[in-house]
Design a protein around this nucleic acid. Structure first.
Length: 820
DNA sequence: GCGGATCAC
DNA sequence: TATGGTGATCCGC
């Protein structure tokens, strides 16, 4: 029971939260929240805006209420099942991502990503100069917006190690001479006064925030602080120093300050860069311990993608920090979508992308305008037309055409509506867009008639831009031809046989339709009883994940290598053996054999779980069964095996009150991949204590970084060897090149996918090239021919039957009359 | 594909 | 005094 006052207070809090007054986000710390809240509350009370905000807040509360009801219906059994699944999921995903993070396998090669959002006023002008500086460190840096960019400075740092001091030396400039910022170049002499102005850069980092040591530098003591000479600064070779250098150069060139985050992936880099805003930097060292230490108490709201609504929903489930997010993962998997859940899991594990994907294709373009109340229909139409013209101009600049027109309407009560219409062929001119937008607007005006639409905002958007493949397909396909020539005919395309219809699908749909990922996904959906199935195959996340990109590249490489000349020396990406003077075919056969063949030594194969303390015999049988399958090296069974194995691993620690002793786990073959087991949280599914333990134990070092690890509870001691042993196939790799090694791990992880991609592309090639327009015409003619005779047949049949009916009727009448 | 909602900048 | 514009994505239908 709430008193009225309490209710009011709740409402007030809700509203303030909704209005974005949240001091969790960086930059809000230290502000007088109370005072601001008071001002805003006074100012907004009674306004339509306020009323609408309250309405939206109620909706969110309703969502939360529904969620809580759903939660209340979850049985402990369901939760337990989810726990098992989420554990195996976690297992798979952990690998998938890690494979793309070389730094986590071989520690010395860590991608260092920095995010540099300088505080600009004169964005446009300055942005270019900044960007020039950034390109020195990563020519492929990704500019997110005018004031934010991601850089991968891994390569720069490698080169930087050998740079002479001169190359890292910059002169402090205080005048307007912004042209010279190249290292080592003498600048105009500055006066004593000017020189005394210190760059802001070096007052920014509290000493306790300096990370201890750095894998990139030999002598951290010397290099952690730039040497300030008379009017020059020499920066060190570490990541931290390089970023200081970037910020220094930005400040010198633009007089604006920048903050930066240095971390092993973009997600963390972003959070990091907020840490010492507006003029500082923060580094998370690229090892798991440091990452988890950083993540541990991090409020989820700080992470990009977690907004105020998600924050509130998760808060209702007792989740505020990343640790809590991880602990509740089983519950979250039941209450949220797969996509959201994966996102949560990534966050809670400190995972993020290490690739700086170039700007993807634009998905939509829009214009919208806010104005004082507009109720006259004529005005609304003419405004709509204006917006369409503006949009058409913008579209023309980028040469875009699209098929979906959406109008957006916000009424004076701040209620937003969107109405969309998709047409069959692309549009781009003002007239074309307006023709569609006008109809949408009219429908809305008519719907409210006789009341006018009282609008305060209107927008027009165009989307569904065809991609390059679509365009090509459009040109090639007979459907495109028919659409242009005869709309009606194209409709018959639906009646084509399925196999033929597939030919008309755009490549994206095609690949999705048949993709390995989708197959796995549906498999998982249809085999609910198999709770141990490993879920490594979420289409969306995998397609965007680094490993997928790597694989795609590798597939492309495989494809192109098939077409390349024959005198090459091939190095098998699986076994690393060189194959000189063999034909490409033979080499491919070898790679296939490597991918397929039982490359795993019997004594090196995964550990036998019969040593485990699990008492459930049938489970063990499952495990053994899966091992025998694994020997076939089929990817699907491999996945399944992973799932079962992971469950088994989890089960090792599940025995409540009787945690498996180190010896029992240690009794497992020491050749078993540490990864395989180490990535699992050693936790119980029920006890709170184990939940608390999970964080310290879940993130254990892998092969590359085990040397620094202290022994973990319930874990066998780790055997450290210098040789690189693949954590997947457990084979010692005949290479010391970490790049090659990482490539091997990628391949091992994704054998099945590679095979699938190869199969797909091989299967597609002949059909693509042989299906000509002529064939389609023949199919069409044949189709109509059959249709014609089919109809004719039924036509004749119909009249035949009708004739007999009539005949019998008359006979009947005749006999009636004649006989009676 | 549509419409509402959330999120980022 | 009175609460932006643009783009992306997700989810349920």
């Amino acid at each position: 029971m709430h008193s009225t006052k309490e209710k009011n207070d709740n409402n007030k809090d809700d509203l303030l939260l909704r209005m974005g007054l949240n001091d969790n986000k960086a930059g809000m710390e230290g502000l007088d929240k109370e005072k601001i809240n008071k001002i805003i509350m006074e100012a907004t009370r009674g306004s339509k805006f306020y009323v609408n905000e309250l309405k939206k807040e109620k909706q969110v509360n309703q969502r939360i209420e529904n969620m809580m009801q759903q939660k209340a219906q979850i049985t402990s059994q369901q939760l337990r099942k989810a726990q098992l699944q989420s554990t195996s999921n976690y297992y798979a995903r952990r690998f998938g991502v890690r494979a793309a993070m070389p730094g986590f396998i071989a520690k010395r090669l860590c991608p260092q990503l920095t995010i540099v959002p300088p505080n600009f006023d004169k964005y446009q002008a300055v942005s270019r100069e900044v960007k020039e500086i950034l390109a020195d460190y990563d020519p492929n840096f990704m500019a997110m917006s005018l004031d934010e960019a991601y850089l991968n400075i891994t390569k720069h740092l490698q080169e930087r190690q050998n740079w002479p001091e001169d190359k890292r030396k910059y002169f402090i400039k205080t005048g307007n001479s912004l042209e010279n910022d190249k290292p080592g170049e003498e600048v105009n002499k500055v006066s004593e006064q000017e020189r005394s102005i210190p760059p802001l850069l070096f007052n920014d980092i509290p000493p306790d925030l300096h990370p201890q040591g750095n894998p990139f530098q030999a002598n951290s003591e010397e290099q952690n602080n730039p040497q300030i000479l008379q009017n020059a600064i020499v920066f060190g070779t570490s990541a931290e120093e390089a970023v200081k250098e970037i910020r220094f150069r930005i400040e010198q060139k633009t007089t604006l300050t920048a903050s930066a985050g240095i971390a092993p992936n973009t997600m963390l880099a972003k959070v990091c860069s907020d840490k010492n805003k507006p003029n500082g930097q923060y580094q998370i060292l690229p090892d798991r311990e440091a990452v988890m230490d950083f993540i541990k108490d991090l409020p989820i709201r700080k992470v990009s993608g977690i907004g105020k609504v998600t924050e509130k929903m998760l808060k209702a489930l007792g989740v505020i920090t990343c640790t809590e997010l991880y602990q509740q993962r089983a519950l979250l998997s039941l209450l949220f979508s797969e996509t959201s859940w994966h996102h949560f899991l990534h966050i809670s594990l400190g995972l993020g992308s290490t690739l700086l994907a170039r700007d993807g294709d634009r998905k939509s373009m829009s214009v919208e305008r806010t104005f004082s109340e507009m109720s006259k229909a004529e005005e609304q139409y003419s405004l709509c037309q204006e917006l369409c013209s503006e949009l058409a101009q913008d579209l023309q600049k980028e040469g875009l055409k699209g098929r979906t027109v959406t109008i957006k309407l916000k009424n004076v009560n701040f209620e937003v509506k969107t109405r969309a219409s998709t047409v069959s062929s692309v549009v781009s001119t003002a007239e074309e867009i307006f023709a569609i937008a006008k109809d949408l607007l009219r429908t809305e005006i008519d719907a409210d008639f006789p009341h006018p639409l009282r609008l305060r905002l209107m927008g027009v958007r165009l989307s569904s831009f065809p991609n390059e493949e679509d365009k090509k397909q459009q040109q090639r396909s007979i459907i495109g031809f028919l659409q242009a020539g005869n709309q009606a005919l194209s409709a018959t395309g639906h009646m084509l046989e399925k196999t033929d219809k597939d030919q008309f699908l755009k490549p994206l749909e095609m690949s999705q339709k048949k993709s390995f990922f989708d197959k796995k996904r549906s498999e998982r959906k249809w085999s609910q009883q198999d709770t141990f199935k490993c879920e490594a195959v979420d289409t969306q996340s995998l397609q965007t994940s680094d490993s997928f990109q790597v694989l795609k590249k590798m597939n492309e490489n495989l494809e192109t290598s098939e077409n390349s000349n024959k005198s090459q020396i091939f190095i098998c990406p699986v076994c690393f053996r060189e194959h000189g003077s063999i034909s490409l075919e033979a080499f491919n056969k070898h790679v296939d054999a490597c991918l397929n063949g039982p490359s795993i030594n019997e004594d090196r194969k995964m550990f036998s779980c019969s040593h485990a303390s699990s008492t459930e015999v049938n489970r063990k049988e499952n495990v053994h069964h899966s091992f025998s399958l694994r020997e076939k090296q089929d990817y699907e069974t491999h996945q399944k095996h992973s799932g079962i194995n992971s469950v088994d691993c989890a089960e090792l620690v599940e025995t409540k009150g009787n945690p498996p002793k180190a010896e029992s786990v240690g009794a497992l073959s020491d050749k078993h991949s540490k990864e395989e087991c180490a990535v699992f949280p050693r936790e119980s599914f029920n006890t709170e204590q184990h939940y608390q333990n999970s964080f310290s134990t879940v993130l254990l070092e892998d092969t590359g970084s085990s040397q620094q690890e202290s022994p973990q509870p319930y874990l066998p001691e780790v055997i450290i060897t210098q040789a690189l042993v693949c954590p997947i196939c457990n084979l010692e790799q005949k290479t010391s090149d970490l790049t090659l090694f990482n490539m091997h791990v990628d391949i091992c992880l994704n054998k099945g996918i590679i095979q699938e991609l190869r199969k797909d592309s091989l299967a597609n090639q002949p059909t693509k090239s042989t299906k000509s327009t002529g064939e389609f015409v023949v199919i069409f003619i044949l189709f109509y021919f059959i249709l014609f005779y089919f109809i004719l047949f039924y036509f004749i049949l119909f009249y035949f039957i009708l004739f007999h009916f009539i005949l019998f009727y008359f006979l009947f009448l005749f006999f009636n009359i004649y006989l009676f």
